[in-house]
Amino acid sequence: MRVSLKQVTKAYHQNSLVLKNLNLDLAEGGFLFVAGDSGAGKTSLLKLIVGEEFPTSGTVTCGGIRLIEGAGSSLQIRKRIGVVHQDYRLMKERTVFENVAIPLFFGRHGRSTKPLNFMGSAALRLTEEVLQSLGLSTKLLDAKVKELSGGEQQRIAIARALINKPDLLVADEPTGSLDHDHTWTVMDLFQKLNIQGMTVIVATHDRDIIRKVRKPTLHLSAGSVRVDERDGACIF
């Protein structure tokens, strides 16, 4: 899914300019890191891309559809985007299965236009597959999320973002609570999915990951932008 931002400015209050005149064009199947210190605007940028926030000025386009507040088309685009939130946003009273499989019901699966039967065996199979790909045991399916460790919860959030095979994956600090091995399990999976055609945007302040993965990086610093373009997939 192609992602374009044109002259995007985002301010929450009159004196708090988070992003200023940002231009970004990420081609379909591209991979982009968004780096920067805390408060640099990484999360705000990702929220603009997934349509959770809207720009003060400028336009955001995903998959050729301009994201407009309240528009039904924005809602349709969300079904094609997998999001890993920095704070996980899990339903802690519910089971792992309910958390991971829920996008299948509200959204879609892969290229299919119809939602899957939430209680059907296909949903269970897909949940097991995605958990295994992230190094999680399928025995956790019936466990309540609140009973899991921070690292497990983070991987549950990633599994939920990936289960419906989205066209665009937007991950905000997806490895913040993971140990070294699990961090690389996740990053390897992201790269594998990117090779298969998924557009991936990862916000991180882990320089080690950015250095080793070697993908284009957008450095945000107090609203200004510096680009470290490595493979030409990203045009600014």
Partner: peptide, 8 residues
Amino acid sequence: SLVRSFGA
């Protein structure tokens, strides 16, 4: 909000 973010 979460459910909404999945396109509900």
